[in-house]
Amino acid sequence: MTERSLTFTLNGQPREAKVDPRVHLGDFLRHSLGLTGTHIGCEHGVCGACTVIVDGSPVRSCLMLAVQIDDCTVETVESLGKPGDLSPLQQAFAANHGLQCGFCTPGMLMTLEAFLRTTPAPTEEDVRIAISGNICRCTGYQGIVQATLDTASTKANRT
């Protein structure tokens, strides 16, 4: 199949790439760009592990073709923090045991990162609804919900 050229912004940097149209965004990020922070779970849109942010909205990267991000802005979990310099949400996940095996974590983080931008003061129910499309088999969600609420209230107290 004919490869298509695309230009996009990835984690703040302008990028250019060529891609086979049948490659979904998640595979493109992992295999073509080497950004393996994004995890691929079910590949049919039910687990949420592959969530990334495109033009400000959280999307399932297994249900979007890489060719569709032409002219778009993409954010992956690599944009949040680095080892030793975690983002506030990542720190709260660590402090609240919001992860165990870590497979769902990048999708949880990117979903909640986008969610907190539009809902800076959520209730517990808001958070639970926000992550209803992300499956975690380890934590029972309690730590994830608490981490999100802590992040929101810490930010509110600072400002």
Binding site: G48, S57, V59, R60, M64, G133
Partner: peptide
């Protein structure tokens, strides 16, 4: 209808 990620698309 779905979840925030699916409603975004």
């Amino acid at each position: 209808v779905g979840h925030i990620q699916t409603r975004a698309r």
